[in-house]
């Protein structure tokens, strides 16, 4: 019981004398690394693990601009094709220099978010003024997600991490359920990767970064396109902004809907 709630402390009498046995000297205390249990033994539901997501968030779009990053996602969490939860925030402030947008299985998003939040509290506890940076967080996510996929038990998520680095430069990256990761001035998950990414790329000036206004306008435009073209999208979204003055979540914003053209569409 004593050692159940203390992962640091070693059990009492470890390496101590055991009647009828030899001492275990230091070095014996590191047990040979065993394969994780879930790989060697069947769980209560057999050996098959989740291979699909249940309640899902759709696209997330992140744009890096000259003074920070913006990450946008609509507020819908679907259950299959059912628009089940329509007012769920999927862009989160993590600390003063990180925002995170999550797509994919929402339970998995919530789970990883809890773990990250605990890390932020640890940062506070140390009271040394050192905080997590977006690059470090996305690196950590990559390790966790790749590890999970290697155990054939992936977290079904596709996240966008953005924020400001120690030296003040904006950072934006995407990590997916296999631990694939890349950084760019625009990253997107879900349908936005097909619909929004090209729209942003074709407007990128070659010689400079976007400005905040341009990024903001592109987000608005892309969320509109996504709403019209992606059936798992909703007309309401939030935008997380991270710049030198901190992190904020703006919205919920409405997509300006106009269905007058619907009557003119024929042939489907």
């Amino acid at each position: 019981m004593l050692n159940n709630y203390n992962s640091m402390a070693q059990p009492l009498w470890q390496n101590g004398p055991t009647p009828g046995a030899f001492y275990n000297f230091t070095g014996g205390q590191q047990q040979t690394q065993k394969l994780p249990k879930e790989l060697t033994a069947a769980g209560p539901f057999g050996t098959k693990r989740s291979t699909s997501s249940i309640t899902t968030g759709s696209s997330v779009l992140g744009i890096r601009y000259d003074g920070g990053v913006m990450i946008a996602a609509d507020t819908l969490v679907s259950y299959g094709s059912l628009a089940r939860y329509q007012n769920i925030l999927r862009v989160f402030p993590i600390n003063n220099n990180i925002i995170l947008g999550g797509g994919g299985d929402f339970a998995d998003i919530q789970s990883i978010k809890r773990t990250i939040d605990q890390k932020m509290i640890e940062d506070q506890c140390y009271a040394d003024g050192i905080t997590m940076k977006p690059k470090a967080l996305s690196s950590w996510l990559t390790r966790v997600l790749y590890n999970r996929r290697s155990r054939m038990n992936p977290l079904y998520i596709d996240v966008v991490v953005g924020g400001i680095e120690q030296d003040g430069t904006p950072y934006l990256a995407n990590v997916d359920l296999r631990g694939r990761a890349y950084e760019d001035y625009v990253v997107a998950t879900g349908f936005a990767r097909h619909l929004a990414l090209p729209l942003v790329r074709e407007r990128k000036p070659k010689d400079r970064e976007f400005t905040a206004e341009e990024a903001s306008e592109l987000i608005r435009k892309c969320m509109e396109v996504l709403y019209y073209r992606d059936t798992r999208n909703m007309a309401q979204y939030t935008v997380g902004v991270c710049n030198a003055s901190g992190t904020t979540i703006d919205g919920p914003c409405k997509v300006s809907e106009n269905w007058t053209f619907a009557a003119t569409i024929k042939g489907y």
Binding site: N6, S7, M8, A9, I121, Q124, C125, Y126, A127
Partner: peptide, 28 residues
């Protein structure tokens, strides 16, 4: 020491023991 967002801890005695128990409290 800070143990949680709103919880603090102060010790009198051995500093090394204090650091250690602070860690235990944080884990709790």
């Amino acid at each position: 020491f800070i143990v949680e967002k709103n919880i603090g801890m102060a010790v009198a005695g051995l500093v090394a023991d204090g650091n250690y128990v602070a860690d235990i409290a944080r884990q709790e």
